[in-house]
Simulated assay, not measured.
Amino acid sequence: MNTGLLVIAAALWGAAAGAFLPRAAYRFCVPSGEPWREQCPGGHPVRGWFGRARCGDCAEAEARYGSSPALLSLTTAAVCAVLAAATGTRPELGAWLLLAPIGVLLTVVDFRVRRLPDPLTLPFAGAALALLGLTALVPEHAGEWTTALLGSLALGGGYFVLFLINPAGMGFGDVKLALGAGAVLGWYGWPTVMLGTFAGFLLGALYGGALVVARRAGRKTAIPFGPFLISGAFLGLLAGAYAA
């Protein structure tokens, strides 16, 4: 397939997948320890996890709630398009496109409520390893499943050590998310793991520093790290895919 057509197809997939995220984002965006939302702001039941965040029982002016479907759709489309441009027609692109919407959803939830839900982080890691395991059976792939597995264990283990050292600064949700990020990065080798890990910490440090400079946070203020872990993995993945 022509690269331009591939990028367009990936963007269309991302736009369609992102359009189904608003309801899940709304239901998952609750503080740690609280149950997932089961009602819209008007008190009516929210059925299912994926789809528009719109209540048919509320008045028209109050029917919409949660995240903007257009924003989630455009964001997911952009992520998928860039992944397609970097990966090309290699079979692992299928894995990246299936995992991308989950990464976008996790980023939204953690930014809003500083929570990385287990129903997302653990399946993300399992899905990454399973999809890459299948990809390894397809000709013309550019990575190694063994390194993906080891990368998952290494990054998850590293984050677990950081969690033990400073539980206030590193949540256990980040540890579980690191398992999936390590698998994705490990597919393209250890240099990609190191690059993605460094990028995540750098982005987090820059964000925290910007908040301190703007006097919106202190040096000891906790920030959601999941979005930066995901962003770093995304940048590392792009570099690894492009260089493969």
Rank of each mutant, 00 (worst) to 15 (best):
A95L: 07
W49H: 05
P101W: 05
E38S: 14
W13M: 10
T87N: 01
G169L: 09
L21A: 06
V213C: 12
R23F: 02
G200F: 12
H141E: 09
F234D: 00
L21D: 01
G56N: 12
G151M: 10
N2K: 09
G240L: 07
T107S: 13
Y26Q: 00
G66D: 05
G196I: 12
G157M: 10
L106V: 13
S32H: 13
R54N: 08
T135W: 00
L122I: 14
C40K: 08
F124H: 10
A244N: 00
G200D: 08
P117L: 13
A241I: 01
A100Y: 01
S231D: 05
S68A: 08
G218V: 10
A70K: 00
G43P: 07
I230V: 15
G209V: 12
T221W: 07
V79W: 03
M194R: 04
G103Y: 06
Y26A: 06
V193M: 06
C29S: 15
Y159M: 14
Y188H: 15
T107W: 15
F172A: 03
S68G: 10
I230G: 06
T221Q: 06
A85F: 01
V82M: 02
Q39E: 15
L131T: 09
L129R: 08
G169K: 00
F163D: 01
A84N: 00
L179M: 14
L83F: 05
G173Y: 06
R112F: 05
G48M: 07
M194D: 09
A136L: 10
R112P: 06
A199Q: 11
A19K: 12
D110E: 11
A10W: 02
A241D: 00
A17M: 13
L185S: 01
P22F: 11
T89H: 00
F225A: 09
G4D: 07
R27N: 03
P191F: 10
A222Q: 11
A183I: 06
A241F: 00
G208S: 14
P35R: 11
H141R: 13
I223L: 14
V7N: 00
T121K: 08
A210S: 13
F28S: 03
L238F: 02
T197P: 04
R52F: 14
S67H: 11
L237C: 10
A19W: 15
A127W: 13
